[in-house]
């Protein structure tokens, strides 16, 4: 039992991260609600999806934490935590705070910045709603609020972090499924946890942290059971800036071709007489 004032002990300049461990999640959605409460985000509709118990469906401009519900084969005598079977998995999703972030790279206004905690922060007073980040995020996280005209996403509770508090979602989580801490420490913890889970026979457990792609890793890692696809986690996310070289090369080639065509045409055909 810890009070609300306890200090995370993390100083600005230290890179922080989440490690969201689905094997500890109980699907209570406290994180989702705590995020909305802390950040004053509105509800995003009252639609019954029929997708298990998930009625908020996805991350978006008004949902910065989102708990996914994955139903599997159910066998009497085997609970969801058993090694043999994955039956009803819950996984709390959030902005990945990419090491190389598509949204941040794409942002023309400088609204998206890298914070002193290594996270990706969208400054709403600078965002102009160009929505270029929206199509540049390989995880489909950031979204423009059409009514407001600006884009929004998880702030990593930078305000709380600066005050030495842990993010609201992590604080609300009753089972410590959402761990918050220093990135390097959590990376180690993730490996230890994975080893534990595998030693319990959960061979399908894995860490989701795409370090092998141009994203170069994320600051909100996940431990999941089963394939990342099930949770809409892309197996090979790429930062769109990797396409830039090819695109500009091709643009330059075409531009030269255009100028050539114009020059040649007018040179040969554009003279009177």
């Amino acid at each position: 039992m810890s009070g609300a004032t306890d200090h995370t002990g993390i100083q600005p300049g230290e890179v922080t991260s989440f490690l969201t461990d689905s094997t500890l999640c109980i699907g209570c959605k406290a994180c989702e609600v705590a995020c909305k409460e802390w950040n004053g985000i509105s509800a995003d509709g009252y639609d019954f999806t029929g997708w298990s118990y998930d009625n908020t469906a996805a991350l978006g401009h008004s949902t910065w934490r989102h708990v996914k519900f994955v139903e599997g084969e159910i066998t009497p005598g085997i609970g969801g935590n058993s090694a043999q079977q994955l039956s009803w998995e819950f996984s709390s999703d959030v902005c990945k705070h990419c090491e190389v972030a598509g949204c941040l790279e794409a942002c023309p206004t400088g609204s998206l910045v890298r914070t002193e905690f290594g996270s990706v922060f969208l400054q709403p007073d600078i965002c102009n709603g160009c929505s270029y980040c929206v199509i540049s995020c390989p995880f489909g996280v950031v979204q423009k609020n059409e009514d407001d005209g600006r884009a929004f996403k998880c702030t990593f509770c930078t305000d709380r972090q600066k005050a030495g508090m842990m993010p609201a979602c992590a604080k609300a989580c009753p089972t410590e499924s959402i761990k918050f801490g220093r990135l390097d420490e959590l990376k180690v913890e993730a490996q230890v946890r994975l080893a534990t889970l595998q030693s319990r026979g959960m061979t399908d457990a894995q860490i989701y942290d795409p370090t092998h792609t141009s994203v170069k890793g994320i600051h909100s890692m996940f431990i999941i059971r089963g394939e990342p696809e099930t949770y809409n986690l892309p197996p090979r996310p790429e930062v769109p800036t990797i396409y830039l070289k090819d695109a500009w090369k091709s643009a330059a080639f075409e531009a030269v071709a255009m100028v050539g065509a114009v020059v040649a045409s007018f040179f040969f055909l554009g003279r009177k007489g």
Partner: peptide
């Protein structure tokens, strides 16, 4: 049940 070892 989903977070238990055995569900009956």
């Amino acid at each position: 049940s989903a977070t238990a070892d055995i569900w009956v």
